[in-house]
Design a binder for these strands. Structure first.
Lengths: 348, 348
DNA sequence: TTGTAGGCGTTATCAG
DNA sequence: CTGATAACGCCTACAA
């Protein structure tokens, strides 16, 4: 592969001049400049990014650590980050953690030796990120946290307004007349799960509805979790008439459980999710959901990083993106009359 | 960040010895070896991958070029590749092309300057890959093609047995008694789409059913394409009683169109997809599909690459992974009696 | 404005 | 078996 020395020879200039032309680091007289550029063209020369990285102590790569690309919500974030990074000349190194904080640690340590220009992280459960990020900061490498934050995170972050989104969803259910509202939350040590629960609670509080502890079920952010916890909820007496699911995967599991129990959504029970994944459109009924843009989460995170790379030293930014309610067919007013006495509160 | 020089000083040896210990490139006497390792531990030293890459003219990164992470089938491939690569000490640089071959070209050119150890590509439409790959081969960098191949691709490849999978699906429909079979294919310049069509044709040929040209619709591999082409099919007289969709996204679009047309799947019309995506489980009816493992596609591709990196110079390998039929509720026997005369063949 | 040369952190070659 | 030392390709003072 052609290198600078060859280009210099071809253009009959010194290697330093070639570098100057390529980086605009010194005013090079036009005729020479042109000669260099022509040589570059002719040889289809492209600077070796590895050598450049070594010299500059920084590469054009942005590390991205996520739980799992395979999980429908994350690819959108990745894509957003990739688009923004790419159009600014940066490439993404992608690492999966499976929500395993020790795997995250390995990636964190490893990645630093690639001299990335920055790091975008969707932290795993019980992330050590705060400690590790300091080592990056020392090297002048920015770290942006996305979607959920480790406890005590004080660096840059981009999240959705989980609390408000959950509040809106819950309020919508309340307005339809639901009184027996349940929620299936994600792991409550994740900030996004906790915030969503808080939004749910706030909406109930506002209408002075007290929270039945059994109506709050915590599980993992996946279909299986939603399925099993829904079975639990459906056995309760009185049975909830609406479920706010911590995310769409949980909601999907719920839907399956509801169907299997011989109930009909939304006639017997309303369901609303969070994330507004594409696959919510094709379920039956189509899933109502709190919409957040993973793509925008990604672009925003990359944007912040690019600013930091560009020398922005302002205090940490905490961007919170708005959510909106995406209403489809999985919500309706609660059933007028309970089907049987067993649906009534067991007040006797 | 600590470097070799510091470790050498700490262990009171030369920098060369440190390198030898770290790479086992020379038998170092145990006491010294131990001293070095202790220093490495103490300083939490990790070799700078960029410097190493420059020196070796090869990094520990594997470039991966795909159409779009956001497209449900590809993340699985990415994940498979990432897992295999990671467990062997390699990292993935991910690039999206949006099926745009000029964007693919940019990535292909750019990526080379990062001195990747290898490249995994899911080619875009009209890919120039064959030409570009030669430049990689010259540098001794392996390139593996996945899922679909550019025309004339002669390098390593990993694909599913698209032809057989399509054949199996079609045969299943035939065995249920369907005679009016339609298919909605992906872009036929993509090898996987073409092979799937070939499988479909072979199954028909085998039972001496002639192919009605209007029953073959070509479109893009997405929901919208499936939707619009299904509308076309549903207007045909006689109307097909079964549709084999080129992939699950197309099938999803089909399902929506069928529903909208007031028909019921599978009672009025059977539907079978390809890929067996997770989201096919939650549609109503649950989607039958030809199952292929994207994950395995990814791991296999990475495995080949690792072998090449390890010095394997055997002739190009063309791995074809088996598919299986994943039967759910979207297929049934054709309706016994046509609802109206218009469903009958127009033989008069 | 252009050229020269040193060095980024590693590895590899070659003496000792 | 261990230690100097010269690259790898590029950038950047600094000198001319």
């Amino acid at each position: 592969m052609a290198n600078m020395k060859e280009i210099a020879k071809m253009a009959r200039v010194s290697i330093g001049t070639v570098s100057h032309v390529l980086n605009n680091s010194a005013g090079v007289r036009e005729p020479i400049r042109k000669r260099v550029l022509e040589a570059v063209q002719a040889a289809r020369y492209q600077p070796n990014q590895v050598a450049r990285g070594l010299r500059r102590d920084k590469t054009n790569m942005i590390g991205m650590i996520i739980p799992d690309v395979t999980n429908p919500f994350f690819p959108a974030v990745v894509r957003g980050a990739e688009d923004m990074a790419f159009s600014n000349g940066y490439r993404l190194i992608l690492c999966n953690t499976d929500n395993d904080h020790s795997k995250e640690l390995v990636h964190l340590n490893e990645l630093r030796t690639y001299l990335p220009a920055g790091l975008i992280v969707i932290p795993s459960n019980f992330s050590d990120l705060t400690v590790q990020a300091e080592r990056y900061q020392e090297a002048g490498t920015g770290v942006v946290c996305v979607d959920r934050l480790p406890t005590n995170w004080s660096g840059d972050s981009v999240t959705a307004d989980n609390e408000q989104g959950a509040y809106d969803a819950t309020q919508h259910l309340l307005q339809l007349g639901h009184k027996k509202l349940a929620t299936i939350t994600g792991p409550l040590h994740l900030t996004n799960a906790k915030e969503r629960l808080n939004g749910f609670k706030r909406a109930l509080r506002e209408v002075k509805l007290s929270l039945t502890p059994e109506y709050v079920q915590e599980t993992t952010f996946d279909k299986r979790g939603g399925y099993s916890k829904t079975l639990v909820l459906l056995r309760l007496i009185p049975r909830p008439t609406a479920i706010f699911a911590g995310n769409d995967m949980i909601a999907l599991g719920s839907l399956l459980a509801i169907r299997e129990a011989g109930l009909v959504c939304p006639k017997d029970i309303s369901l609303i999710g969070f994330d507004d994944l594409d696959l919510g459109e094709t379920t039956d009924p189509a899933l109502s959901s709190v919409s957040q843009s993973g793509y925008q989460l990604g672009t925003t995170a990359a944007r912040i990083l690019l600013d930091r790379i560009g020398g922005d030293t302002a205090p940490a930014r905490h961007i919170v993106l708005e959510t909106s309610l995406s209403l489809r067919n999985s919500v309706a007013a609660p059933p007028k009359r309970p089907k049987s006495r067993s649906d009534e509160p067991a007040r006797t």
